[in-house]
């Protein structure tokens, strides 16, 4: 299977899922002739058609591109590495409500640096701390844009009591 076939297959799955949901949209009494599900169903059908076309084209041309398929699989393994950044982002979303913005964003800078080829060092810690302070200064102090405070305000309030 080459990447074009996989792209077509994924497109077809998306189209089918989307169409199924579009078909289940409730029609209200205010509905016009087209209705809330009218255009979405057409989009789903057209995406499915183009996905099938892509799969057919991929099958007919795959015989010519044997070498390219190996290159594509190597590229796939290299591409997987990029998704580590996604894991760091998800970690941030999960942690920031507890740790608060400055600590979490410093952790993002440190871990993303390490993941991109940096090494554990005092310099890394200093850059993470300075970066977090800089971002806090710009967003919270200068622009007055609130960022998650974490458990710290409640904790400090609890200690004062």
């Amino acid at each position: 299977m080459n990447r074009h076939f996989v792209a077509g297959f994924l497109g077809l799955l998306l189209a089918m899922g989307y169409y199924a949901m579009a078909a289940n949209i409730q029609n209200s009494q205010l509905a016009d002739e087209v209705g809330p599900g009218g255009l979405p169903k057409i989009y789903g059908i057209l995406l499915a058609c183009f996905s099938i076309l892509l799969m057919v084209r991929a099958r007919t041309s795959s015989a010519k591109a044997g070498g390219k398929i190996r290159a594509a699989s190597e590229e796939f393994f290299a591409a997987k590495r990029g998704l580590g950044i996604l894991v760091i982002g998800i970690g941030y979303i999960l942690l920031v409500p507890f740790l608060g913005y400055p600590l979490s964003i410093a952790a993002v800078i440190a871990t993303a640096s390490l993941y991109n080829g940096g090494h554990i060092s005092l310099r890394l810690a200093a850059i993470a701390a300075l970066g977090a302070f800089g971002l806090w200064f710009v967003f919270v102090f200068l622009l007055h844009i609130g960022q998650p405070a974490g458990i710290w305000p409640d904790l400090i309030e609890g200690l004062h009591r």
Partner: peptide, 8 residues
Amino acid sequence: PVTGNNRF
């Protein structure tokens, strides 16, 4: 945009 139904 026309009926106000929720979609997706």
